[in-house]
Design a protein around this nucleic acid. Structure first.
Length: 244
DNA sequence: AATCCGTCCAACCGCAGTGTG
DNA sequence: TCACACTGCGGTTGGACGGAT
């Protein structure tokens, strides 16, 4: 409250930050902490609004920030998370230490978006040439596009559109096919054959992934993201109810 | 040499959510 | 309950820069 009123009395400067302003902001925060951004601007002797100070600190001055090019690994993480979460830049930044949401967002728009679009175009061209009765799940294909072929990000991003996902054989059982492989077989009613278990599928995928010597921490973050679903049996229940 | 154009990135803007009096 | 302040987020903009013409 105080910060805002003080802020209003000062004509705020805009535009690029000078090294002197950076130093003032940095010194103030390192000595006093942040508190209220509005008062940070005033007490640090900056003719900026609190919002501007906050942004400058978070995106540029904060200790531990990584500067420079994104690594291939970071690219993979961004693309995978984008497939799962969409434009949740801030959320993605939690998985990329030293990177800011703004940086990730910019990188996505300037590099990765085109990359994915090009791959998608190729994919759709290929798809139009082949007639395949197997139902493949949309994001599985995206995973391939993103260069992390066997990642199980399919499980949550689009799982509400289950109609795309299910394929039934004549006996009413389920056959889930991912990237041309049968992942799990069984019945949705849970009484005959193995239940439709996502966790089984995940194990299968992870083993495959490890065999290919791909870094597994990507899995960790995917599982972490997927915590929004309390457990996989919830999904079983949902799948079951959809089948009904 | 001039200028045009595309790219990249820092910063701004508007909005939604949350906290507080 | 309401109004206001503050924070955080995602979209957008504007300027710097480099390459092409």
């Amino acid at each position: 409250m105080l910060g805002k009123s003080l802020e209003k009395k000062i004509k705020n400067k805009r535009g690029l930050w000078s090294p002197d302003e950076d130093q003032k902001l940095k010194d103030y925060i390192l000595n006093h902490g942040v508190g209220c951004w509005g008062s940070v601007a005033v007490h640090a002797g900056l003719q900026r609004n609190g919002k501007s100070c906050r942004l400058r600190w978070i995106n540029y001055l904060r200790p531990g920030l990584k500067r420079g090019n994104f690594t291939l690994h970071e690219e993979e993480i961004i693309m995978t998370l984008h497939g799962m979460l969409g434009n949740k830049w801030s959320h993605m930044s939690h998985h990329l230490p030293g990177r800011t949401d703004n940086e990730i967002k910019n990188y996505w728009h300037s590099h990765l978006k085109k990359k994915v679009q090009n791959s998608d175009n190729k994919k759709s061209q290929n798809r139009s040439c082949s007639s395949n009765h197997t139902i493949t799940y949309s994001n599985v294909e995206s995973s391939e596009v993103y260069g992390c072929k066997y990642l199980p990000k399919i499980l949550f991003a689009d799982w509400l559109s289950l109609d795309q996902f299910q394929t039934s054989d004549s006996s009413g059982g389920q056959t889930i096919i991912m990237n041309g492989e049968v992942l799990n077989e069984g019945s949705f009613n849970g009484q005959e054959g193995p239940s439709y278990g996502f966790d089984d599928s995940l194990d299968h995928l992870q083993m495959k992934h490890e065999q290919q010597h791909v870094e597994t921490d990507l899995y960790d973050l995917i599982f972490e993201e997927n915590n929004m679903c309390q457990n996989f049996s919830d999904m079983d229940a949902m799948l079951y109810s959809c089948e009904m």
